[in-house]
Amino acid sequence: MTDIQHHVPDDLLMGYATGALPRAFDLVIATHVSLSDEARARLEAYEAVGGAVLDTLDEADLSDDCLQKTLAMVGDTARSDRPITTSGGTFPAPLRAAVGGDEDAVRWRSVGAGVKQCVLYSDDSGTARLLRIPAGRAMPEHSHHGTEMTLVLKGAFRDEDGVFSRGDIEVADAEVSHTPVAEPGEDCICLVATNARLRFQGLLPRIAQPFVGI
């Protein structure tokens, strides 16, 4: 576990617990929780509320032979294998699953100014992508309509709210324009999720935007 300074807000953890988040946010939360026991404990507390809600529901009627059918199904099932966990590497298991491997498997594309990105998925509900900012370099200035979550996986960046390093998460609300700058030393790799398309404000990124699918 890393020493995490910037934590995820409660509404997003509860949203994950209830299943209300867009897919891109789910990926950030699942990855963050893999890196932070503090976030895991808070998430599991919200899941405990879900357990209590489930336990106090009025019972639905089941078909007559439902238990027998289910027992027949378990009779055919072997105990599932040990869960997959990662030891070492840059990406926790949920991010590895989305990328198809660890850091070396990422297919980076340049978005200008030395910054590279890899879109993991993008749909109507939002976009998840990896960003790689060269050490000491600024991320292209951008603003966005909805909420933007940024989780640091490697290196660190600094912006108006302080320094963010591995495991730290920054949540920026609509129309906030901020300019993260990668700390010197090593490239900063972040997982960024937005529930609306990003708008880069520099000239070059704006030209590149239609082609790279930001």
């Binding site: 699942a30 893999s34 991010l95």
Partner: peptide, 10 residues
Amino acid sequence: YSRPEPEDLP
């Protein structure tokens, strides 16, 4: 689709 889940801690 399969929702991203945190790593297990068994």
